[in-house]
Amino acid sequence: MAPIFRWGFMGLVLTLIYIPILVLVVNSFNASKYGIKWGGFTFKWYEKFWNNDGLMTAALNSLTVSIVAASVATVIGTLAAVALHRYQFKGKALLSSMVFVSMLTPEIVMAISLLIVFMALGIKLGFISLVIGHITFCLPFVIVAVYSRLKGFDMKMLEAARDLGASESSIFWKIILPLALPAIASGWLLSFTLSLDDVIVSAFVTGPGYEILPLKVYSMVRVGVSPEVNAISTILLVVSLVLVVISQLLLREDK
């Protein structure tokens, strides 16, 4: 491919990817209600969102679910990554294939399978079921992030630490954890954004009493254009973009 054609093609695809996002962001500041003409710059849609109690509650609920889910997934995922990396144990192949499969399972299948299991176990749909669901789809991402970081190090180091008198817990706290920390932080941030943005699993496992932002947005856009959705969407986009960029910078830092 000729360089000009190559750059042109990449430029075109990337532009097409980012145009809708840009349009949305610009329109969230557009005073004209239907976003057809530029009606002047305004913050009023953000104010409307801020003053809408229902939306704010949903946003707070979303934040709560995401923080809890990301944190639990990070703890369990980090431990699992360390175990997969360090130890030989029965069922290791099974565990890693479950991680692999759960990453590839279509979300809709995961959603209904979780719904069925919550019914079977008698778990009430609501906060708890949402958190469990979100942990489940975040977990493999954390495991993979931490595992691939650990794999990048010479693990003779752990033997060296033992040789120098470090107990198993010292090795974990003084060697493994500091080394994996960027990946752990990045795993948390990615989990947080995944959880904050999820629609499919949430649509199935949420309960009537517990509203979260993406579902609220979903029901709003289904009935028609409402400008405060643009504001909410912009906030969601910006939060995700910032967190993902931070997480990537964390991983790049000492490489």
Binding site: L190, L236, L241
Partner: peptide, 10 residues
């Protein structure tokens, strides 16, 4: 990593 619902809406 951003909200795909929001992008669909866009």
């Amino acid at each position: 990593w951003t909200n795909s619902l929001v992008r669909t809406y866009a």
